[in-house]
C-alpha cells in the first residue's frame, strides 16, 4: 500500500473534523474492503480515519419493536447476539453467513452498509426489513439510502451512527453464495411487517433493490406459490463469470420462494 496518515479519533465530532480537513481522507471501519484496495494500491487516501475507537458507535440495543445496532458492531456480535436472534432471527442468520469467522470478527455493519457493495448481505437486511439509517446528521429511510453501485445517500462528512431495524412479524434471508468469494450471487430478504410485505434483493443488481411485484403478491398470500410466476427483469442485472443476468433473475425467484418458506 501507499503511505498514508493514520488517525484514531474517539468521538464522532473528532472523526468528522479529521475527515473534513483533507480532500482525500477516508474513513475506515472494519476495513474488509478498503484494506484489500489499499494493499493492491487501488486506493490512495492521504489520511485514514479509523473509527474503531469511537465507543458510542458500537453495541446492540433491543426493545420490543426495534433492534438498534451501532455502526461499528461486528458481524459476529450480531450473529451471536441472543437478543438479536430472538427478535429478528433472520438478521442474526444473515450476519452469521457473511464471509468467514475472520471477516465476521472484524467487519462491521456500518462499513458494509456505507460501502454498499452490490453483493454484500447487509443491504438486503436494511432494505428488506425497512430499517432506518441514523447518521451524525439525520435519519435516512432504507428506501432512500441505496442509490447505485457503491453509492448511497450519505453525504461527505456524514457517518452512520446506527441502524434501526423494526422487528418484523416474520422474516428470512436466503442467499446463494458465489462459489469463489462467497459473496451473494443473489440474496433475498423477505419480511412481513406491520406495514405489509417487503422483499429486497442483493447480489443481483447494482445495489440492493426491492421487488414490488413480489411484495404485492405476498401481501395477499404469504406463500411461495404466490410468487412462483413473478420474475424480475434480467436486463439490468449483474453479469460475470459466475452468473448471467438470466441466471441471477432465476435465482431471485428461487431464493424469494425459499425465503418465504423459511420466514419465522
Amino acid at each position: 500500500m501507499y503511505a498514508f496518515g493514520y488517525h484514531r479519533p474517539t468521538t464522532i465530532d473528532e472523526a468528522v473534523t479529521l475527515l473534513g480537513q483533507s480532500e482525500d481522507a477516508s474513513a475506515i471501519a472494519g476495513g474488509q474492503t478498503l484494506l484489500q484496495s489499499l494493499k493492491q494500491r487501488l486506493a490512495q487516501p492521504g489520511e485514514l480515519v479509523d473509527l474503531g475507537a469511537i465507543k458510542e458507535l458500537s453495541g446492540i440495543a433491543v426493545d420490543g419493536r426495534t433492534v438498534v445496532i451501532g455502526a461499528l458492531t461486528k458481524h459476529n456480535e450480531v450473529a451471536l447476539s441472543s437478543e438479536v436472534r430472538k427478535a429478528v432471527p433472520a438478521l442474526a442468520d444473515l450476519a452469521g453467513a457473511i464471509g468467514d469467522h475472520q471477516v465476521r470478527n472484524v467487519g462491521t455493519i456500518g462499513g458494509s452498509v456505507a460501502n454498499s457493495d452490490p453483493a454484500a448481505d447487509y443491504p438486503a437486511a436494511v432494505l428488506g426489513l425497512g430499517a432506518t439509517v441514523e447518521t451524525n446528521q439525520r435519519r435516512i429511510a432504507a428506501d432512500d439510502f441505496f442509490i447505485d453501485l457503491f453509492e448511497t445517500a450519505l453525504e461527505p462528512g456524514e457517518l452512520i451512527k446506527a441502524i434501526h431495524f423494526p422487528v418484523p412479524k416474520r422474516a428470512a434471508y436466503v442467499k446463494f453464495a458465489q462459489p469463489a468469494s462467497r459473496y451473494a450471487l443473489a440474496g433475498v430478504m423477505v419480511a412481513e411487517t406491520g406495514d405489509g410485505v417487503r422483499l429486497a434483493v442483493t447480489g443481483a443488481g447494482a445495489c440492493a433493490f426491492r421487488v414490488p411485484a413480489m411484495e404485492q403478491a405476498l401481501a395477499g398470500d404469504f406463500s411461495a406459490d404466490a410468487i412462483k410466476g413473478v420474475q424480475v427483469d434480467a436486463d439490468e442485472l449483474n453479469d460475470d463469470i459466475h452468473g448471467t443476468p438470466a441466471y441471477r433473475a432465476h435465482l431471485v425467484n428461487v431464493l424469494a420462494r425459499r425465503a418465504v418458506e423459511a420466514a419465522r
Binding site: 477516508s26 490512495q44 460501502n115 454498499s116 457493495d117 453501485l149 457503491f150
Partner: peptide, 8 residues
C-alpha cells in the same frame, strides 16, 4: 474514476 473504495 472512482468506484467504491477504489479510485484510479
Amino acid at each position: 474514476a472512482k468506484v467504491g473504495p477504489v479510485n484510479a
